[in-house]
Nucleic acid binder design. Structure first.
Lengths: 214, 214
DNA sequence: ACCCCACTACCTATATCCCGGTATTGAAAT
DNA sequence: ATTTCAATACCGGGATATAGGTAGTGGGGT
């Protein structure tokens, strides 16, 4: 039941070091390594790993392009980015390319195994420096929803979110421990206040306001 | 050399639970707690802690406003946000308010001490769920999946987009010059192929795939 | 040549949505 | 003190969505 991973980095010594470090972890199996993007694609096609640990700054096909192609060709695979620095553009592009984790090489030694386990479980793992970069990038991307909280009550907000998630009135009623008819009243009030007329518009509104993600 | 922290949460039981959990950590000293934002400000002024662990959803002055005031009045203090859910708006606003860490209450038990130590060292600590939210928020609108086109026919794609825009079957039928019953067949086939079961999920799918904007 | 599938169209049936009303309670605002 | 409104709950009814079946036509691929 070990996690099958592959490594990609243009520095052979780093590959060797990573491999020896990860071989101490019983639940992680390194099934191959590659020195550039093209070799990585071939390696992944052959070994079918769950996770690829990819250096961002490789010559030839870099980590970003390699990640895009990797995920396009094998949507199930999860990519952890490894980089020398937490450069903002690299971070954003790698994460947009679909990387689920991002570590810098200065991270503590036990962060890579921890990141691998977290990502294998479907979580997102960012090292502190990268988290700080993201926080910085997200600065100013809030503030848009004040009209929602102003117009809707707390309960109505809850109902709105659940409706936008595709739950039916009866399911929502069970979840909130209230009668289905009450859920429908909330729904109607929400629609009246926001001038929406069906679940699709309601869902789009919730996503637009950041109440739920797509 | 222990880290002096204060806790703020409107649920007394949670305060007690957090306190007893943190008192097991020798390098962390809980020097006070508060049940709302106003009490937190007074407490911080009196005890001068290094870190404040603040619940986002408190009555009266909520965690966001409390954090803003806290940092405005005492720039050295570091705030770790604690919240029931990883709601996108709360995350963005708390981090914009200056929080250095963000945990949800469903996090593993050892995450809070780890977050406290990381933040005490000037790092940023986000739990995986919040990291995922940030990644989502930072994602530019560049990606346009092709897997949709692979699974759906041309006509089905048109119907999907119109459904996601909130049009009813009959309206779509008129728009596409086909019978309403045909639209419904397309709708069912779309749902079957994509494993979706209502317009809300269908709308989210369309937005996620970039077929329409929120 | 054959089969698969997208597209077209219709029928039936149940569930859910959407809209209209009414009413009580408690909290907040004026 | 009065008003306003969120939150709770119910009734009725027409519209729509959801889910199943059948069936003909035309295009593309083995």
């Amino acid at each position: 039941m070990s996690i099958r991973i592959v490594l990609a980095d243009d520095h052979k010594m780093i590959l060797a070091a990573l491999r020896s470090m990860l071989e101490k972890e019983k639940d992680i199996a390194v099934v191959g390594d590659a020195a550039d993007g093209a070799a990585l694609l071939e390696l992944v096609a052959r070994t079918e790993p769950e996770i690829a640990v990819v250096d961002v700054g490789m010559p030839g096909m870099n980590g970003i392009e390699a990640t895009q192609r990797l995920i396009a060709g094998r949507p199930g695979i999860r990519v952890i980015a490894l980089s020398a620095y937490s450069d903002k553009r690299f971070v954003l592009e790698m994460l947009n390319a679909g990387a689920k984790g991002y570590l810098i090489k200065a991270s503590a030694g036990d962060e890579l195994p921890r990141a691998i386990r977290a990502v294998a479980q479907g979580q997102t793992y960012l090292c502190p420096e990268v988290a700080a970069v993201l926080v910085d990038a997200a600065r100013g991307k809030s503030m848009l929803q004040v009209n929602t909280a102003a117009k809707l009550g707390r309960r109505e907000l809850e109902v709105l979110v659940l409706l936008a998630e595709g739950k039916s009135s009866s399911v929502i009623a069970a979840r909130l421990h209230i009668a289905p008819s009450t859920v429908e009243v909330h729904r109607r009030n929400i629609m009246r206040k926001l001038d929406l007329h069906n679940v699709a518009e309601l869902t789009r509104y919730a996503i637009r306001e950041g109440l739920t993600s797509a």
